[in-house]
């Protein structure tokens, strides 16, 4: 098995499979100020490419994926912008059109495999259901395919597992089952929202290896949402760092990790202890917390916590400096201006 194969970056000329443009999600709860969870996010995903959305809790990474999938509750949320998938704007599709897409063309893997599986239905039934719904197969036809899928994601003794309920499987096996469900209709785009956060490191390594292999074998595009820069470094072709609902830096994985430009990216990289670094050095944390953020419309949200802050940072919103491949949003980037 090829654990270490670098996923080939698809040529830039290919048309994007998913093109998200200026996505905005605003939460409005009763008697409260509106909260911009996602504040103008744009990115492209090309076939066969793995794109990472990285950030800490509250940065809007998960909301972005839910908005694209049309899974945000209607009440209290406004979604603006567009997400063009294969020529159609997903955000303007009707709920029933979206349901046809979900599971068939676009599939999603969630963080907590136990709560994303129905506890009273067998694993086999849950996998076959997707195929019956989208491919019009009968249950008889779908069952052997489901077993194949479970085998494909590395679940031992797949035929017997079809009759198991989610609680009878371990966390890692449940996540595999969930991936099998997501793959049931050979989707062209897979969105994985923190798929390994609830798992132990040795199990995480198994799941990441599986995802890598799937992307290479099937050519599925993958959007990887995570807080773990280590996971991104091993998996993603392109990395987007989110802060306060905006993308603050984007780059290819080698470029971004070798020469991060945005102070937040630098701060994140500096603040995690690395297993391979020499010991004894003090960590360099980012001061403060997200509670200290400024509003984006008249400042850089990160300015209060930023060690690179200059005067203009608290007066104006930094513009995107770059293109849709690399770039950052900062007045005073690390390593000087472009």
């Amino acid at each position: 098995m090829t654990q270490h194969q670098t996923i080939r970056s698809s040529p830039r000329s290919t048309e994007p499979l998913l093109s998200v443009r200026d996505l905005r999600v605003t939460f409005q709860r009763r008697d409260e100020r509106a909260f911009k969870a996602v504040d103008g996010v744009s990115f492209d995903v090309r076939p066969g490419q793995t794109v990472g959305l990285v950030g800490e809790s509250g940065c809007g990474k998960s909301v972005t994926s839910l908005a694209i999938m049309g899974l945000l509750p209607k009440r209290g949320n406004t979604v603006e912008g567009e997400a063009v998938f294969d020529g159609d704007d997903l955000l303007s599709l009707s709920p029933s059109q979206m349901r046809d897409r979900r599971g068939a063309d676009i599939a999603m893997i969630f963080q907590d495999p136990l709560s994303s599986l129905n506890p009273v239905i067998t694993i086999g039934r849950q996998v076959t259901e997707v195929m019956e719904r989208h491919q019009g197969l009968s249950r008889k036809e779908a069952t052997p395919k489901a077993a194949e899928l479970l085998d494909r994601v590395g679940i031992p003794d797949p035929k017997a597992r079809l009759a198991n309920y989610p609680h009878q499987l371990s966390g890692g096996m449940r996540q595999r089952a969930l991936i099998a469900m997501a793959l049931a209709c050979s989707p062209r785009l897979l969105i994985a929202d923190e798929p390994t956060t609830a798992l132990d490191v040795t199990i995480q390594a198994q799941i990441l290896a599986l995802l890598k292999e799937l992307v290479v074998d099937t050519g599925t595009a993958l959007v990887m949402i995570t807080h773990d820069l280590g996971v991104v470094a091993g998996l993603c072709d392109e990395v987007n760092v989110l802060y306060g609902g905006k993308i603050v830096e984007r780059g290819g994985r080698h470029g971004l990790f070798r020469q991060p430009r945005h102070p937040y990216t630098v701060g994140l990289l500096d603040s995690i202890p690395r297993l391979d670094a020499p010991r004894g050095e003090k960590l360099n944390p980012v001061p403060g917390s997200v509670a200290d953020n400024l509003p984006w419309d008249s400042a850089c949200a990160f300015a209060p916590r930023c060690s690179h802050r200059v005067d203009v940072c608290t007066r104006e919103m930094p513009r995107w400096d770059g293109d849709d491949v690399v770039g950052f949003r900062c007045f005073n980037p690390v390593g000087g201006p472009r």
Binding site: Q3, G171, M173, A205, D228, G230, A233, R253, L275
Partner: peptide, 22 residues
Amino acid sequence: AVPVPDPLVEDSREQILLSGDL
């Protein structure tokens, strides 16, 4: 199994994947 935030290390390291669960 611990991911390291460095693509070079990630690409070149030798990973021992354990099979099965605890």
